[in-house]
């Protein structure tokens, strides 16, 4: 039974969209594989699968550096869309996701979850070109979605504490220090 079917069956049973991304090894690779399941608040299962599929490629898991799946970013996007967008924005957002999913099958010949990383990379590289050529005043949906994913990524505990120069209590202000490629300074002020 493939994953999509598993989700469908679970949905039939519970009436809720469920997803079960598998956390990849984080940091030293010693973290156990963990199953994350969430009840979606607003997005349907296809939309969640679309987010999961592309966010895995946009923010991949690497040894020592968590990715979208490890951080449950699909769940994060679902909550943000539900709570932070107006009804009109929600409608535009879900339509944007449906269109994105359609575009993926049109260009790759299969649905987002079956398209495979290579096809998704090709697709997303094309998307990136279009999206960043557009004026920021008319933000294409892809860029909106990506911003939300990136925001969820950057404000997650794992990323803040292991991938950035995070200080809850810096204790001092060094006004002018050399920049030698170090990671950005961050604190609790978001």
């Amino acid at each position: 039974m493939d994953r999509r079917d598993a989700i469908k069956r679970a949905t039939l049973l519970s009436g809720l969209a469920l997803t079960a991304p598998f956390a990849t090894a984080v940091l030293s690779g010693c973290q156990a594989t963990e199953k994350r399941i969430f009840a979606s608040l607003i997005l349907n299962e296809d939309q969640i699968v679309t987010i999961e599929s592309i966010s895995r490629v946009i923010l991949p898991s690497e040894p020592g550096s968590p990715g979208a799946e490890d951080l449950g970013l699909a769940e994060f996007v679902d909550r943000m869309v539900k709570d932070c967008l107006s009804q009109q924005e929600q409608a535009a957002f879900t339509k944007g996701l449906d269109n994105l999913s359609q575009e993926i099958s049109d260009t790759s010949g299969s649905s987002a979850d079956k398209a495979g990383d290579k096809a998704l990379v090709t697709f997303l590289e094309q998307k990136e070109k279009e999206a960043y050529a557009a004026p920021a005043s008319d933000l294409p949906f892809y860029r909106q979605l990506k911003q939300l994913l990136v925001f969820g990524y950057l404000t997650s505990e794992q990323v803040m504490t292991t991938q950035l120069d995070y200080h809850a209590i810096p204790g001092r202000y060094d006004s002018c220090i050399p920049y030698e490629g170090q990671n950005a300074y961050v604190d609790n002020n978001v």
Partner: peptide, 19 residues
């Protein structure tokens, strides 16, 4: 810097590094 710098082009490891 993070997390305000969300609007950055790129995907994959390159994006993660630039963020």
């Amino acid at each position: 810097g993070p997390p305000g710098n969300t609007d950055q082009p790129g995907i994959g490891q390159d994006l993660k590094r630039s963020l």
